[in-house]
Computed example of a mutant assay.
Amino acid sequence: MHLSELGDRICILGPSNSGKSTLADAIARKRGLATVHLDQLFHLPNTDWEARPRDEFIALHDAAIAGERWVMDGNYSVCMPQRFLRATGLILLDISTPTSLLRYIRRTLFESERRGALEGGRDSIKWDMIRHIAVATPKNRNRYRAMLEQVDLPKVQLSSRQAIKKCFREWDLAR
């Protein structure tokens, strides 16, 4: 599928640390779309990943999807129905749990700046995050695959790091 077939409002879903933010930024630069990192809307800036009040997050989310041209990365199923109603295309990154864990450890320990980072936040190895990736992610993966099947939008599923790299090449995306 060509990138333009996904339209001007693209949702990127997938497990934590699968590369959603990196892909979103690359697509935004290529297509001239606004980038929306849902982690930045969900968490309060200048904290250690403290969640916003739910109503505040939903209001920020709904304001972001009201725009005409965006690429949005993140899951947050509480807002998926309205997001999918506005979306014109969907990308699912479906990488393995071990790959997600390795990416989490690598980026936390070795990357001082990363795409989608929380403003003023700090990354550190958190057991809650490791547990989330190891326990919740495999369950969510099946749910996201089922959602992908049900959504009547142009969609792409990328099931490995190699598939993601191939997509970057085919769509002529720059990291």
Rank of each mutant, 00 (worst) to 15 (best):
M1T: 10
H2T: 11
H2S: 12
L3Q: 03
S4H: 09
L6I: 05
G7W: 08
G7E: 02
R9N: 01
R9H: 01
I10C: 10
I10V: 15
I10Q: 08
G14Q: 04
G14D: 07
N17K: 12
S18G: 15
S18Y: 00
K20A: 03
K20W: 01
T22K: 01
T22D: 03
A24T: 03
A26K: 00
R31V: 03
A34K: 14
L38K: 04
L38M: 13
Q40D: 02
L41A: 09
H43Q: 04
P45T: 04
P45I: 04
N46F: 14
N46M: 03
N46H: 15
T47Y: 07
D48K: 05
W49I: 06
R52A: 13
P53G: 03
R54G: 00
R54E: 14
R54A: 11
I58A: 13
I58Y: 06
D62A: 06
D62S: 08
A63Q: 14
A64E: 05
A66W: 03
A66C: 07
G67A: 15
G67N: 14
E68H: 09
W70Y: 00
V71L: 05
D73L: 01
G74N: 07
S77P: 00
S77D: 12
Q82L: 08
R83G: 02
R86L: 05
A87E: 03
L92R: 07
L93Q: 10
D94W: 07
T97I: 11
T99A: 14
L101G: 09
L102I: 12
T108C: 10
T108M: 08
L109D: 07
E111L: 12
G120Y: 01
G121H: 06
D123K: 10
D123N: 12
R131I: 05
H132F: 15
A136M: 08
A136T: 13
R143C: 02
Y144N: 10
Y144V: 05
A146T: 13
A146H: 12
E149D: 15
E149P: 00
Q150L: 11
Q150C: 07
V151E: 13
D152K: 14
V156R: 06
Q157S: 13
L158G: 07
L158V: 04
S159Q: 11
R161D: 11
Q162W: 01
A163F: 07
I164P: 02
K165D: 15
K166N: 13
C167Q: 07
R169W: 04
W171T: 11
A174M: 06
R175Q: 12
R175V: 14
